[in-house]
Amino acid sequence: MTAPINLAVPSARWLRQKGTLKEPTVLQSFAFDEPNGHLYVLQVTATGRPTGDLCLNKLDHQGNRLGHMYLKGFGHGVSMGVQRDASDGSTWIWTEADAHNGYGRGVTRFHFANGAVRTGADVRIRHPIAGSVNNQPSVCTTSRRIAVRYRNAADEPRYRVWNLDAFVARDYSDPLTDFAQTGAHPDPRIPFQGYALYRDCVYQLAGTAYDPKTNPAARRGNAHVSSLDIHTGELLQQERTEAGYTLVGREPEGLAVRPGPDPRVYIGLASGLVGARRFSIYYKQDKAS
């Protein structure tokens, strides 16, 4: 197993208090397009929560918006993935799709098209786990694997991981692993806020926005990051994070891993008032990993 990234290291600021997303809502998830220097960010639209309408933002690494597109009836945007096509160098975006009650029952991939509006009829939707709901993908370009977080018939959250090439070829018959989600937060009632697959681990984020009674800012929040071994499902590490604790209304939203010699775990944070949200991204870099 590849050594996991140490989540106990202090967090560093990457982007802070950016207001460049197209919709006035919080970010839900984000992923890096390393070869092109782009950052993709998903939001639920201002009126799209019941129907699963999303806005996909394309940003540069300074947080400036380069374009956007709308995804009608896709889901909640809890996670996403980016894949570079080796055959033509194009970038594929992976998201949930086929929304029911605001969450995707399948996944899909597509190319970014600035200003476009896509519906389920415009993409090829995959249902790799029969009868599941809340399908949420993440791609590891380093190991060439894809994970889908899902809920089974008993409403239990689980992860299933495949070889990316097999998945692209629509061969879902031989997943590398399937295991129960665990350890996202010490309090199981605290909401899950995102995950990312990287090498042999799944990295998770959970927590709530500041609240004077249940999560006061003076205590610097209840956000936690954690890691699971994809081969055993074992909880490897669980750490509280105070990243961005001075943000107004701070709420953890979205997690991504940026590969490289010293890989980083990036934590998304929403802040600001309703209708005027801002986003910040902090990271943990473990130079010993």
Rank of each mutant, 00 (worst) to 15 (best):
286 D>N: 14
242 E>D: 15
153 A>S: 14
277 R>A: 00
173 S>E: 11
22 K>M: 14
204 Q>M: 05
257 V>Y: 05
287 K>M: 14
237 Q>G: 02
44 V>E: 04
93 I>E: 01
26 V>K: 11
234 E>T: 12
25 T>Y: 04
245 Y>E: 08
3 A>L: 15
143 S>L: 05
276 A>E: 09
103 Y>R: 13
117 V>G: 13
8 A>R: 14
258 R>P: 02
105 R>P: 01
124 R>A: 15
267 I>W: 08
144 R>N: 12
288 A>L: 13
289 S>I: 15
60 D>K: 12
119 T>D: 04
184 A>D: 09
67 G>P: 02
34 E>A: 13
193 Q>R: 06
97 A>H: 06
265 V>W: 12
184 A>C: 11
57 N>L: 03
115 G>L: 14
23 E>M: 03
67 G>Y: 08
146 I>F: 07
235 L>P: 07
39 L>H: 05
33 D>G: 00
288 A>M: 09
122 D>T: 11
288 A>F: 12
29 S>V: 00
111 H>W: 10
94 W>K: 00
195 Y>V: 10
278 R>A: 13
132 S>V: 09
153 A>C: 10
283 Y>Q: 03
20 T>F: 09
29 S>Q: 11
273 L>G: 15
32 F>D: 14
286 D>L: 08
169 A>G: 11
104 G>T: 02
149 R>Y: 08
116 A>G: 05
199 R>W: 09
75 G>V: 04
55 C>G: 02
139 V>E: 04
128 P>E: 13
61 H>S: 07
248 V>D: 14
77 G>D: 05
136 Q>C: 08
187 D>A: 04
247 L>N: 05
237 Q>I: 01
80 M>G: 00
249 G>Y: 14
38 H>I: 01
7 L>H: 05
227 S>W: 06
115 G>F: 11
198 Y>V: 00
89 G>I: 05
183 G>V: 08
177 T>I: 08
114 N>T: 13
16 R>C: 10
104 G>W: 03
66 L>P: 01
